[in-house]
Design a protein around this nucleic acid. Sequence first.
DNA 1: GTCTATAAAGGGATAGAC
DNA 2: GTCTATCCCTTTATAGAC
Lengths: 202, 202
Amino acid sequence: MVNTSVDTEKKILEAAKRVFLVKGLSGARMQEIADEAGINKSLLHYYFRSKQQLFKAIFEEIFSHFFPALISIFNNNEPLELKISMIVDQYIDEFGNKGYVPLFLINEIYQNPELVSSLSGKMDKMVHSEFMKELQEGIQSGKYVEVSPMQLLSNILSLCIFPILAQPMLKSVFQIGNEEYNKFLEERKKLIPEMILKNLIK
Amino acid sequence: MVNTSVDTEKKILEAAKRVFLVKGLSGARMQEIADEAGINKSLLHYYFRSKQQLFKAIFEEIFSHFFPALISIFNNNEPLELKISMIVDQYIDEFGNKGYVPLFLINEIYQNPELVSSLSGKMDKMVHSEFMKELQEGIQSGKYVEVSPMQLLSNILSLCIFPILAQPMLKSVFQIGNEEYNKFLEERKKLIPEMILKNLIK
DNA sequence: GTCTATAAAGGGATAGAC
DNA sequence: GTCTATCCCTTTATAGAC
């Protein structure tokens, strides 16, 4: 099996992803990406001209992967109550030990909000999903209390993601290790949907 | 009024704080800090030898300021229910338009968890506060449902801080501007304590 | 204590051989 | 398409004059 150019490009993208995710744009070094990919530094420029362009490719890949899981669940056939549990499970399972992924997105978007402006079309499907329709109908029929979709979504994402971002701080404050932290996260899979539903169902 | 060395050191610390808070350790530049302080770059090294040491001074100042407000409320004379509202108001008012402060802490601690190990003593007062005693007593008397302090604190902080970190993302997803975002945050001052208490009081 | 000048290393980017 | 060599600017850090 030879190294085709396709392989090389893929190797670069994978290496760049690993490095950018953990170090961010300003912390990442082209040399480190090259080493990680097992190739020469100048090949990075051959394939992606500049650090900025390589970063943009990585950012868009990561960003574009972050919401589809959410959108897919938002549009499946399960009732709203179950959808919420599925989202919580999904995010805790996927990012519980990879907090650097949501942290990367929050950081880079905070530093440079224009990064998302070209990608905002992808998120229409979230605001206009089955989940949101069910919510509106439930509110009108009196099943749910009146709540803005933005508040509800913020609550769900906050409760799932923040404790993952703050993992090192929480471990330090409560003097716990990995095992206890994982138990804490597992508990949240039950606790968060309960909390959300108790505040949603009339 | 002359420039004493005390003034200079203070000017450096204030400038460094502004720059490090927004750019982080890897993104900050010594030149920018010097410019911001209106002094020569080599003075930074005269007062703080290296970028690392200057950063450490700033980090400890910011970290040490983040929890005392919480601890102070945790130990005041108000009932637990009111304490929760006060914490929510405090964090939303203080960081609503300064998300880079909690983001800075989360980031730098995530990159380098040892940063807190020397400061963890300060947080004992949080785990062993009046708030936690009231919680324990309320659970034993049957007033509150059984909940671990870590879960409760995580819920409160998550609901307050995450939407502030994710401000640019939320604005982009829901296509809103500053005015609507501030209204969203104001709403949360009522919504969060309601949500927490509904899940705490039996 | 503050400045200028400069060392020394780092890091992004390109030229050119193969 | 991949490498070596190198350019050149940036950035941290120090030496030394005042």
